[in-house]
């Protein structure tokens, strides 16, 4: 098998090339980090409430049923754009209220349907969660998802 290509040549290509690609990747990530903080997520302020809302999101492992920006489990609807789906682009206060009352109404108890648990969130936690979902819906995601269904 191609004798000119020796083991030490292969090894040197591996170590040298990997290092080059690692540096390029690191550089592009650093730029992306900067771009996210200053551009794509900068249209809405990342308030204390948004940060607390993200912790509520995590504490209840929402991502192990739902997706957010397409990542997570695929058992329950996409929530990256739920704020828009609930009409938040036209009536933000209404969408926030809809998110809160949805959470409070669970589980539906309809037999044979997927059930969302009742997480017993406080009013403040619900407000924070709604703020987080509102902030997330304003991220510039290069036009994804294709439509409001998520």
């Amino acid at each position: 098998m191609f004798d000119a290509f020796t083991k030490s040549a292969a090894r040197n290509i591996f170590y040298g090339g990997s290092l080059v690609f690692l540096v390029i990747f690191g550089g592009l990530t650093a730029h992306s980090h900067y771009y996210m903080v200053t551009k794509s997520t900068a249209s809405a302020p990342l308030t204390e409430a948004v940060a607390r809302g993200k912790r509520v999101w995590e504490r209840n492992a929402c991502i192990d049923c739902h997706t957010i920006l397409g990542e997570g489990a695929y058992f329950a609807p996409e929530l990256g754009n739920v704020f828009i789906r609930y009409g938040g682009d036209k009536d933000p206060a209404g969408a926030r209220e809809t998110i809160k009352s949805w959470m409070q109404a669970q589980p539906t108890g309809v037999p044979g349907r997927r059930q969302m648990p009742q997480f017993n969130l406080t009013d403040r936690e619900l407000d924070d969660l709604a703020a987080f979902l509102e902030w997330t819906a304003k991220i510039d995601t290069q036009g994804w998802p294709p439509n409001v269904s998520g």
Partner: peptide
Amino acid sequence: LFTGLLGTGHHYYWIGAPGY
């Protein structure tokens, strides 16, 4: 590694990262 490191980019399409 030549493909996989920059291949991470296929997860960066829709999360608010640059279009490149």
